[in-house]
Simulated scan of single mutants.
Amino acid sequence: MENNELEQKLEDIKQALNTAMALEELQVTAEGTHFKIIAVGDCFDGLSKIKQQQAIYGPLMDKVTSGELHAITIKTFTPTQWKREKVFNMV
């Protein structure tokens, strides 16, 4: 995948998620064809991990079903959890 194509794909993912969700922070990176999404927002408060994952997959479903995205790692945090994660894991 060319660098411009990859950058566009990352921006498309960010735009889809930011449009659909109220996120305080969003990181989308790629290594080859594997994408990693870190999403931080109050919208995850009180949701099970499965519901949090579903909240991320929802806006990306067209890209997943088309095969454009197939290897995705998703990590979701509330702002409080994210502060703790950064302290303990130096993300």
Score class of each variant (00 low, 15 high):
residue 61 M to Q: 07
residue 69 L to G: 06
residue 35 F to P: 08
residue 49 K to Q: 09
residue 41 G to R: 07
residue 4 N to C: 10
residue 35 F to V: 13
residue 26 L to Q: 11
residue 53 Q to K: 12
residue 15 Q to G: 08
residue 91 V to R: 10
residue 1 M to T: 12
residue 82 W to R: 07
residue 29 T to C: 04
residue 45 D to L: 03
residue 54 Q to T: 05
residue 65 T to Q: 06
residue 69 L to T: 01
residue 14 K to C: 11
residue 40 V to Q: 10
residue 11 E to Q: 12
residue 57 Y to M: 03
residue 63 K to Y: 10
residue 57 Y to C: 02
residue 36 K to A: 10
residue 71 A to W: 03
residue 61 M to Y: 00
residue 88 F to S: 09
residue 5 E to A: 15
residue 3 N to L: 14
residue 77 F to P: 04
residue 87 V to C: 08
residue 60 L to S: 02
residue 75 K to E: 08
residue 12 D to V: 08
residue 56 I to K: 03
residue 35 F to M: 08
residue 32 G to F: 12
residue 22 A to I: 14
residue 37 I to R: 10
residue 15 Q to N: 14
residue 40 V to Y: 03
residue 52 Q to C: 12
residue 45 D to W: 01
residue 72 I to M: 01
residue 5 E to M: 08
residue 66 S to H: 05
residue 75 K to D: 05
residue 83 K to D: 11
residue 5 E to H: 13
residue 87 V to W: 06
residue 59 P to C: 00
residue 69 L to C: 03
residue 76 T to M: 02
residue 81 Q to M: 04
residue 74 I to E: 00
residue 40 V to I: 09
residue 82 W to C: 02
residue 30 A to R: 13
residue 78 T to H: 01
residue 20 A to C: 02
residue 51 K to H: 08
residue 58 G to K: 14
residue 4 N to V: 09
residue 34 H to V: 13
residue 88 F to Q: 14
residue 88 F to M: 15
residue 75 K to M: 02
residue 65 T to I: 06
residue 84 R to C: 02
residue 73 T to F: 01
residue 14 K to F: 00
residue 84 R to I: 07
residue 32 G to H: 14
residue 63 K to E: 09
residue 47 L to R: 15
residue 38 I to P: 08
residue 2 E to I: 07
residue 8 Q to I: 06
residue 23 L to G: 05
residue 37 I to F: 06
residue 26 L to E: 08
residue 24 E to Q: 13
residue 85 E to F: 10
residue 91 V to A: 14
residue 90 M to F: 08
residue 43 C to V: 15
residue 76 T to C: 04
residue 90 M to K: 15
residue 57 Y to N: 04
residue 9 K to W: 10
residue 17 L to I: 09
residue 8 Q to C: 08
residue 4 N to W: 07
residue 29 T to I: 05
residue 60 L to W: 00
residue 47 L to E: 12
residue 54 Q to K: 14
residue 33 T to V: 13
residue 23 L to I: 05
residue 22 A to C: 05
residue 82 W to Y: 14
residue 59 P to W: 01
residue 66 S to G: 04
residue 17 L to N: 11
residue 82 W to L: 04
